[in-house]
Design a protein around this nucleic acid. Structure first.
Lengths: 212, 212
DNA sequence: TAGATTGTTAATCGATTAACAATC
DNA sequence: TAGATTGTTAATCGATTAACAATC
């Protein structure tokens, strides 16, 4: 089947559908209509049907959607049926927290390595893996078929490290550094800008409490 | 001046403008045109001018924008000229990492307290503050005029804790729990769903590498 | 079959971009 | 004044919602 480009607006909603369907599945719910899901998720039923139909017809007229089937299909669309090798660059507070907090393996992400140049961290073990010095990184990426790099280093280092990552074949960067990375079109960058998120909260908070 | 509603699309871009203007200011750049900024940020000059003009005219024809002035004004729009009292609920890996990683004070966010019920964490100090048991929380919020709560607890507890927070006057929640909070319209919720972000990356990665 | 609900087309709404008059 | 660049209106584009025919 030929692929038409899916908008990032739709893609951004897929993980949330996936989460709700997973919860329904865990509760033992077998089927759900776009109408019911719409009430649960507080989006329009129309949007739900449009979104799903970007990827083909997963439902059945007069019945709705089979929760299990739809959950699996969205999982496949998200690429969760494939294994991904992942490393974390930067073992400070945030890098360690993400290593420990994220349930990587559950979704097919395999935590392969963690790196840092801070001598104070030398030999420390994070989630079963010893922190390695940065000079090991390039060889490690090639030897372990690493797909995804999580960038939890200060922004001063992020741009140059990202360049090295890309040069060594990394195809996706989960970027927590507070800067924009300028890599080629063939590399996926997903930014998590925590400061930006907090400032957005700040705006909404202040604007709501302005006239009170 | 009367306020017209600003779209979340615009608000979501403000922190990024703020970041770029801060960097320009630090470099000693005095003025910038929408054209130049557009090249730097890879957005259209049209969008930049439209965005800024939601909040009034900050520029000058034939000259452009004064970097310092615009930076300060956007800071004010974001509410950074006011102090906010903030607490962290949940002192696991993520809560501690955020306490240590975020430069709260720099932007007027005052870190007032951190809470957890895990007895193993009792007495532990995070960024200068001792972790308190959850039963202190309600009284603490009132006694310390807390505006913002950062929620870094498991989703199983998040919904009920959020209810308690709101009941005690919290007006903004920075939610890291992997669930949607259902609070009233007068409470601001800013979600950071790390898993959703990683799944989005996964989709984009897989779809790019499908035909290769 | 009758009722329900999808898949899909058409209508609406909002956000982005282009264009240009105003003006520094 | 002439050149540059904003502020703002108009045009375009894309995303959301509504409607309904198809069909289970």
């Amino acid at each position: 089947m030929e692929e038409k480009e899916i908008s990032q607006a739709v893609i951004g909603r897929l993980p949330r559908y996936f989460r709700y369907l997973g919860e329904l599945r865990d509760k033992g719910v077998e089927r759900i209509s776009s109408q019911e899901l719409s009430k649960l998720m507080k989006v329009t039923a129309s949007q739900i049907r449009q979104d799903f139909n970007n990827f083909g017809g997963f439902g059945q007229q007069g019945y709705g959607y089979n929760v299990n089937y739809l959950y699996d299909e969205i999982g496949k669309i998200l690429g969760l049926d494939k294994a991904h090798h992942l490393i974390i660059i930067g073992s400070g507070n945030l890098g360690q927290a993400i290593a420990n907090y994220m349930n990587f393996e559950r979704r097919g992400f395999i935590f392969k390595g963690i790196f840092d140049n801070n001598p104070a961290l030398k030999g420390k073990v994070v989630r079963g893996l010893e922190i390695q010095p940065m000079e090991n990184m390039e060889a490690f990426i090639k030897d372990n078929d690493v797909d995804i790099a999580v960038l939890t280093i200060p922004k001063t280092a992020a741009v140059s490290v990202a360049e090295v990552l890309v040069k060594n074949g990394i195809k996706a960067i989960w970027n927590f550094a507070h800067c924009d990375l300028n890599v080629g079109d063939d590399v996926v960058v997903e930014n998590v800008h925590l400061t930006d998120s907090l400032l957005k909260l700040s705006y909404n908070f202040n604007c709501k409490n302005k006239n009170s």
